[in-house]
Design a protein around this nucleic acid. Structure first.
Lengths: 152, 152
DNA sequence: GTAAAACCTCAAGTAAGATTGAGGTCAACC
DNA sequence: GGTTGACCTCAATCTTACTTGAGGTTTTAC
C-alpha cells in the first residue's frame, strides 16, 4: 500500500494530494478556501487536512466554471449542501439539476447566437436603414438599444 | 430630419452616437481603439469620427465575445477584413463561418458537459474507488489528470 | 538525525476587459 | 457669447481568478 493510498483510507487528505488528484494547484485550493468554497481542518503542525468529498467539490467547481458560472455563484450553490453530514447522492443531484437548467439556457443562447451570426453578421445589408444589426429598434422595444440584445 | 439622422447621412459618426447605437460605453470604444479593434479619424477639434461600418464591427465584437472569443482573437479575425474598402457581404460572411465552427464546438462542449454533470456530479458513487470524477485515471491516459478533462 | 520535500502565511503580481476621475478643450444652442 | 454637454488624454482603479515569491516550519525518507 502506497502512502497516498494510506492517506485515502485515513480519509484525511493533504493539500498536495488533493491538488494532484483534482488537477488544481495548491495555491488554487488555498484560494478556494479563503473564498469559502472548500473547507479543511488543521493537524498538529498547522497543515491542512481534507475530507475526501473535497475532491468532488473541486470537480464540481471546475465543471461549473466550465459552464461559465462564477465562483461567487458556485459558492452560493455549494452553500445549499448540508453542513453537518457528508452530502448524499440526492444532495449532489440537486446541484446538478440547478446547473443543468442554467447550462440548457446557455446552450440555447449560444444556438440563438449562432443563428444570429449566421443570418445577420453575414448578411448583405450594409445599408444603415435596413440591417437589423444597425437598426435594432426595428425589432426591440425603445427601452432596449444596441448590443444589449446580445446579452442573453 | 433630426441631428442624429443627419450624422448618419453624413456617414461621419461621433463617439457618443456610436456608443448609444452599439450599446457600449464611450470608454469601451476608446479601449477597443487602443487595442486595434476599431479605427477612427479626427476632426479639426481632435474629436473621433467613425465610418458607419464601425457599428457592425462593434456588433460583431460583442457577438464574438458572447461566444467566448477573446478580444485578441477577435482582433486577429477582424484583421482579415479588407483595409482599403468597406467590407462586403462576402467579407463578413467569411468571419461568420470562421466563428460558427468555433461556436458549434463550444455548443458541443457544453452539451458534453451537461451530460457529464448529469451522469457524474449527480451520481451516487461517493466511494473514492469507483466514481469516475474521483478516479479519472480510469479513463484518461497517465499524462492527463484531474479536472483537465473538463477543459474542452 | 539530517536533508529534502511539502507545507505554512502574507503580500504582491498577473491578465483580461474595461471603468473612473482629473484636468482641460470643443461644439451646440438660445 | 456664454453655458452646458460632449469630447479629449492619461493614469489609476476595479473585478475575477488565480499565481508567485519570500521567509519560515513540518514531515518524510534514508
Amino acid at each position: 500500500m502506497t502512502d497516498q493510498q494510506k492517506k485515502l483510507v485515513e480519509a484525511n487528505l493533504t493539500v498536495g494530494f488533493v491538488a494532484k488528484r483534482s488537477g488544481v494547484k495548491v495555491s488554487a485550493l488555498h484560494f478556494y478556501e479563503t473564498k469559502g468554497l472548500i473547507r479543511s481542518w488543521r493537524n498538529n503542525g498547522n497543515q491542512r487536512r481534507y475530507k475526501p468529498d473535497v475532491l468532488r467539490r473541486v470537480a464540481v467547481i471546475k465543471a461549473a466554471q466550465a459552464m461559465g458560472i462564477t465562483l461567487e455563484e458556485i459558492k452560493q450553490t455549494l452553500a445549499t449542501l448540508p453542513d453537518k453530514r457528508t452530502p448524499t447522492k440526492e444532495d449532489w443531484s440537486a446541484l446538478s439539476k440547478n446547473w443543468q437548467a442554467q447550462l440548457d439556457e446557455r446552450i440555447a443562447f449560444m444556438q440563438r447566437l449562432r443563428d444570429r451570426v449566421d443570418g445577420c453578421i453575414g448578411c448583405g445589408c450594409l445599408s444603415m436603414t435596413k440591417c437589423p444589426i444597425y437598426n435594432k429598434d426595428d425589432y426591440l422595444g425603445d427601452t432596449q438599444s444596441g448590443a444589449v440584445l446580445l446579452n442573453k
